[in-house]
């Protein structure tokens, strides 16, 4: 409550914030695509903020660990969250829709990017989405969906099924919903 009252005061006086809004940065993905983004949106990523602060952001910021498709998604997220008029409720709704349509592979790409760029809100959202998808799913479903090949020997696998029989009971069907 207290915080809300305090915010409007500082809103339109900070010239630095205004400058950040108009200044644009260029981010370059691993596959060479370039994206422009306002500085105020870009610095929601702690990693980029650090680069800007250390002044190593002259011209183009290369992001060798993020491919173009993923970067485009991340930028959509950042822009929404830097938007002036967006209420918390709006952002929350956006977050939900943002992750709900993603394939598992894309989710992991975004997790990796969000982790690398240190965007906490996005990271939290995507992690939660992945965990949601895993809920009550069988071991086999997880392996298939995450493209993980089991590194247990067949004997161990057999023994696990015997010993941890509970893990194979009461799970959802492996057919994707």
């Amino acid at each position: 409550m207290a915080r809300k009252n305090r915010n409007p005061v500082g809103k339109n006086v900070d010239p630095e914030a205004q400058k950040k809004k108009t200044r644009t940065l260029t981010l370059k993905s691993s596959d060479g695509q370039e994206f422009s983004i306002s500085e105020s949106a870009a610095v929601l990523s702690i990693a980029i903020e650090n680069m800007v602060e250390d002044d190593c952001a002259g011209g183009v910021i290369p992001l060798p660990l993020v491919d173009g498709g993923t970067l485009a998604r991340v930028i959509t997220y950042l822009n929404k969250h830097a938007e002036d008029g967006a209420s918390d409720e709006e952002k929350r709704k956006f977050d939900e829709e943002f992750v709900s349509g993603m394939e598992m592979g894309v989710l992991f790409d975004v997790v990796l990017a969000a982790n690398y760029l240190d965007i906490r809100g996005l990271l939290r959202e995507v992690r939660r989405r992945i965990a949601d998808r895993m809920k009550n799913k069988s071991v086999e479903w997880v392996r298939k969906t995450f493209h993980i090949e089991s590194d247990f020997t067949p004997e161990e696998e057999e023994q696990m099924k015997k010993e941890f029989a509970w893990a194979w009971e009461g799970v959802d069907s492996d057919v994707d919903d």
Binding site: E140, W141, F146
Partner: peptide, 13 residues
């Protein structure tokens, strides 16, 4: 197992 059969491509994790 059929499911294991379909495990292809890079491990997401």
């Amino acid at each position: 197992d059929d499911l294991e059969d379909s495990v292809t491509g890079n491990d997401y994790t």
